[in-house]
Design a protein around this nucleic acid. Structure first.
Lengths: 125, 125
DNA sequence: CAAATATTTCGATAATTATGGAATGGTCGA
DNA sequence: TCGACCATTCCATAATTATCGAAATATTTG
């Protein structure tokens, strides 16, 4: 992943209105929501919403599809995967594992048996 | 985690100069690097670097400590953990696991035995 | 085709952010 | 305490971004 793409995705999320939209779409799952439903849920003016959805789409974090006269937007989970990988890669030159927590939480949701196998990093005072 | 804090951390990373600094610090590990070393590595003017380090520090993604007349900056791994958890939480209302990839990779590094237990999400055509 | 609905584009305004030169503030060694 | 060094703060300038009313575009229904 190139740094420009990472900056673009981070910038897409680094704004309260857009982050709200993104989290709503994560919660909605692969089906997504149409623009009107998003506007209603978050109370955003149409023009403003369109501006932000364009930003999220351009970054790749959100996909869109037309369905009759609605346009549905959905979170692109693979794009977030790539971003997280980019942000956590090459940690400590590969000599240590520095990111157990969020990882452990998601892994536990996927397969509870695995959670205990993931060790914690020592506290740094 | 409150949305304002998440926006703050994302904004801290959503800028090429700061993202370069952060990734350099991730690579450097818990010891960190002093400001001068960062400036030299990335060729950034002192005032500009200071501005960006302040932004990263304020967000919590980076910590600093004085050591003689140098100030060392280091990535705060726990803060990134929290951010990732915030971005991926409540996915699909908990009905599915949408983030296997990056998670599986990091989990595998932590505990290879656990990797196989994490199942994949179905493709959406 | 016309009316209704859903969303985007245009355009103007306000607010925020990035950059770096110059001056300032600590910390150390002689 | 002086001078050298490391880093920050101050300041002005340039650039980018967010907001939303109004107009335009696209799609379905009558």
């Amino acid at each position: 992943m190139k740094i420009e793409a990472a900056v673009d995705r981070l910038a897409a999320l680094a704004q309260e209105t857009r982050l709200r939209i993104y989290r709503l779409l994560v919660e909605a799952g692969p089906e997504g929501l149409n623009a009107g439903a998003i506007a209603a849920a978050l109370d955003i003016a149409p023009a403003t919403l369109s501006f932000h959805l364009a930003h999220l789409s351009r970054s790749g974090l959100v996909t869109s599809r037309q369905e009759s006269r609605f346009i549905f937007y959905a979170a692109n989970f693979a794009a977030m995967d790539e971003l997280i990988a980019y942000l956590t890669e090459n940690c400590c030159q590969g000599q240590a594992v520095c990111w157990p927590r969020a990882t452990a939480a998601v892994a536990a949701a996927a397969a509870p048996d695995a959670a205990g196998l993931i060790q914690s990093r020592k506290e740094t005072p």
